[in-house]
């Protein structure tokens, strides 16, 4: 059985990439969404943090456990 941390990594990576991607597209288009503090581009740095966390979980938990 794969350890639970492996599955945590998969989900964080997938969702992180989606959020980060949406943020980068907005950043490149120059158009801000209509939410408060949108100028801080929260999707870019928060999605980036999620992506990195997901990768780390996957890297350190690849082995199958009993």
């Amino acid at each position: 059985m794969k350890p639970i941390w492996y599955f945590v990594g998969i989900l964080l990576l997938v969702l992180g990439v989606l959020v980060l991607g949406a943020g980068i597209i907005d950043l490149m288009s120059g158009e801000l969404p209509g939410t408060v503090l949108a100028d801080l581009h929260p999707r870019v740095w928060w999605g980036g943090i999620m992506t990195v966390a997901g990768i780390l979980f996957l890297l350190f938990n690849r082995k199958t456990v009993a």
Binding site: V19, V36, R43
Partner: peptide
């Protein structure tokens, strides 16, 4: 709803 744009809204609801 106030702070989260598209994508983050989905994450927040999730």
């Amino acid at each position: 709803a106030r702070y989260y744009p598209e994508g983050l809204i989905g994450l927040g609801i999730t």
